[in-house]
């Protein structure tokens, strides 16, 4: 660690609860090490606020290693901040400079109402999964042997890549339409690429898309911001695949 660390000005969205109006507040922190994660910097701020007897800033976080999908934050106008391929908890302060002013807002979307400060309600994502994000088999263990159906490695790898979505919502927050297409298409693709998922593929895509629309997410206009900001690099190809699945299911479904 060189010198005494960075001095930063933070402009943070404060909002008491879903019903109240919020506003940006200004805070200063000093001595921030470049090795700190962004959330550790916020820990420093909160410790400071607690010691001053004021309420700390509420933000979602849990695993702090980029996999649980709990952390969010819109930092200087980008979901998960300026670095690529990381969540906010993996964003490090070396991406910033001494004297910077940093704007920190919650993920904004009609379908993600603010709970408090920087915490939003992403339960709409769960409800889309309830509508079809599964293979309808029981958990008895009495299925066939795991190696009974060989799956081409390329398909298995693509399904895996889609399945690495962490459900953080950065795609929605980055999209000018607040669309959830990247998120929904990742799950639809994972199953569409595997023989286990093919049996219910039609119902799945129709039901999940219907629920997505019901939750108030916007439409996709192929801008591609979601793919750029996605911490897990979920590919736009998944959206194309879902569109194909949706179209063919709509035409061929038995009514």
């Amino acid at each position: 660690m060189s010198g005494k660390g960075m001095n930063l000005t933070l402009k943070i969205w404060r909002q008491k609860n879903a019903q109240s109006k919020g506003k940006m507040e200004t805070y200063n922190v000093s001595g921030i090490s470049e090795h700190m994660s962004f959330l550790e910097m916020l820990d420093v701020l909160n410790e400071q606020l607690i010691n001053e007897g004021t309420e700390p800033v509420a933000f979602d976080h849990d695993c702090r290693e980029g996999i649980c999908g709990m952390c969010s934050l819109y930092i200087n106008g980008e979901a998960h901040g300026p670095d690529r391929g990381v969540t906010t908890c993996q964003l490090h302060m070396r991406m910033f400079n001494d004297g910077d002013t940093i704007y920190i807002e919650p993920f904004r979307a009609k379908a993600f109402p603010v709970v408090k400060d920087l915490v939003v309600d992403r339960s709409a994502f769960d409800r889309i999964q309830h509508a079809g994000g599964f293979v309808s088999i029981n958990t008895s263990g009495n299925t066939q042997d795991a190696n009974a159906i060989p799956i081409p490695k390329a398909d298995a790898d693509k399904a895996f890549d889609a399945a690495t979505c962490i459900g953080c919502g950065a795609c929605v927050a980055s999209c000018k339409n607040a669309s959830a297409m990247l998120y929904v298409s990742a799950k639809v693709s994972q199953f569409a690429l595997l023989p286990q998922g093919k049996i219910e593929a039609k119902e799945r895509v129709l039901n999940m898309v219907e629920q997505m629309d019901e939750e108030g997410f916007g439409n996709c206009t192929n801008t591609g911001a979601c793919e750029v900001e996605c911490p897990k690099g979920i590919s736009l190809e998944n959206i194309a695949r879902m569109n194909r699945e949706y179209l063919s299911a709509s035409i061929t479904k038995e009514s």
């Binding site: 293979v135 263990g141 299925t143 795991a146 298995a156 399904a159 399945a163 994972q190 199953f191 286990q196």
Partner: peptide
């Protein structure tokens, strides 16, 4: 067996 049937994409 169970996880593969559920669509878990193992290596």
């Amino acid at each position: 067996d169970q996880c593969v049937a559920q669509g878990v994409p193992f290596a």
